[in-house]
Design a protein around this nucleic acid. Sequence first.
DNA 1: GTGAAAGCGCTAACAA
DNA 2: TTGTTAGCGCTTTCAC
Lengths: 352, 352
Amino acid sequence: MESLNGRRPTVIDVAKRAGVSKSTAARVLSDAPNISASAREQVLLAAKALGYTRNELAVSMRSGRSGMLGLVLPDIANPFWGEVARGAQDRAADAGVSILIFSSNWSAEKERMHLSTMMQARVDGAIINPVADELGDLERFGLPCIMIGSSAERFPDSASIGSDIAQGVALGMDYLRSQGHLRPALIVGQRTRLARARFLRAVHEHCIKHDIDPVTLPVEDADYTTEGGALAMRRLLERHEGGHLCVFAANDLMALGAMGAVRETGLHCPQDVSILGFDGIQAGAFAWPGLTTIEKPARQIGAEAVAQLLKRDVEAAQGSRIYLPCTLTERGSIADLRRKLMRDSVASGERR
Amino acid sequence: MESLNGRRPTVIDVAKRAGVSKSTAARVLSDAPNISASAREQVLLAAKALGYTRNELAVSMRSGRSGMLGLVLPDIANPFWGEVARGAQDRAADAGVSILIFSSNWSAEKERMHLSTMMQARVDGAIINPVADELGDLERFGLPCIMIGSSAERFPDSASIGSDIAQGVALGMDYLRSQGHLRPALIVGQRTRLARARFLRAVHEHCIKHDIDPVTLPVEDADYTTEGGALAMRRLLERHEGGHLCVFAANDLMALGAMGAVRETGLHCPQDVSILGFDGIQAGAFAWPGLTTIEKPARQIGAEAVAQLLKRDVEAAQGSRIYLPCTLTERGSIADLRRKLMRDSVASGERR
DNA sequence: GTGAAAGCGCTAACAA
DNA sequence: TTGTTAGCGCTTTCAC
């Protein structure tokens, strides 16, 4: 009976077995209307018996849409991007589309390769954290595209989704202020990075709002790595003139590095030094003390990007930018100076 | 000239522009032999001008192979699986194939969904960390399949790749022994987990080799989470009769949880308690003290799985099992009791 | 309600 | 060396 010897069954096989024509079978299998109950039943039965699964490749070719989305990340092994991928994957699965995930490993060359592979695979849309400055054919053929992450700003014409750095920084600065840290030192990215400027701008805005001269905040550049953070911390410690030191790092890895440097110096966090991070990576929860940090909505970014891409069919939103809010995760790397100050003032007999 | 108004160019468009036939163009574009230099040049020129990219969907349909591999992971956001994905991605990119990554989120239902999506997408092979006990159509149509991770043992018939737990445990036990810890306490997984038995079996073998009664090692069950590890540690501490306590946890998360519990009790690691983990997740590097651990070759597992799948075309290796060796990462959570013992014996005037 | 036939973009067998 | 032709599995007119 099963004369297809190992071959995967096609509509034709199903049609034959059901005793109907190819098109009737196809109609049933694609839920088209105007089918007699008996025909439907026969076809469904045959399909089940044969273990028929629709060949999406063929569907894609006919329809011109592949039901796949491309996702190009700088590093899928990086927990932050892993979360983004997870968000995208979950949202896509809900909508019944698949995701082709690529890891550019921070290489523009690899990225170009992946972009081209995506084009060839005829993905219906792409989500990209761009490394290079140009997208090649993607733009040329108007493939729906959404940029994610900070480097997205290099592409002012395309839609983008990212975390709201300004809001996150404000949140962090407000929190530090609430704990009595008015002039935190800053560990920021290299001068070439766009994220650096955005971070600093947000800090300045906060300062101006609170009548603080931005120039009075110590700033150290680092390279977003643990080692860089440790280096920057040591320099900060050298410059420091005594009293409690508070540091706001532009990412968690640098914050964690800074924490290590503090420990090496024989100082303690948060007793002598307070540290605030930015990202929300898992490792921060296991450091000691736990790293208090501004958490980026990684998973939502992925999910929202997919959602936008799927919506895109209807309305083409050129150059729109969505910034998702960050949240504060308190863990224990920040000293509450206010309470301490209050105690001091009570002790010295002052009243208000 | 560009009369395809936004449409992506096909071989036909290229052929027309180059003034040759469809098949000549196709031959050039697919690097087939027997083409005149002039024809080749014309076609390449036309292709470039038009921005032609081969439609892999069509190629796939003709050839029956999609150039895509499916990868089903329990959680793409989990750093360990992220590393596996990264290894697979890199290796696949080298070979010019794409990877469809799915995250089952530990749900058998979702897994079944993803499996079916993969079948419909006509992937050429699949790499799976199985949650459910059956694979459905994958087996039925003989899709090349490789299982990864510990649950792979539930599928004795299919090929699998994993880390060599026995070797890793032996490595860990030998290392502990070298540091003077002869009878470490064990924090292992739940009784239902296959991994638990494998872990314990390896420990027993080590014990027997070294004339230690395995029963004398305290064992606590936990659920592979930080909280579970902390709980198990507290129970271990209660049972403990004084002196240095050494703990070998079956994964890093539990080890990290145990470390936290030690700190809460007012004890210190590694002075009072030594802890050895198993996995090699990033967070372990940021804990304080850094977690010494047996590192699983996550990235290689992914890479090797892809390699095997690609090789599979040639020789079908049914039921083969590959175990990749683990490595030791020393960080600082283990006390060197030997040195301490030596010091003690020197102090008390003993000679050898 | 159903069948016949065209065609998505490509490759491969056959002819010239 | 090049062109013609027949499909891969599916959807979708267009007749009946």
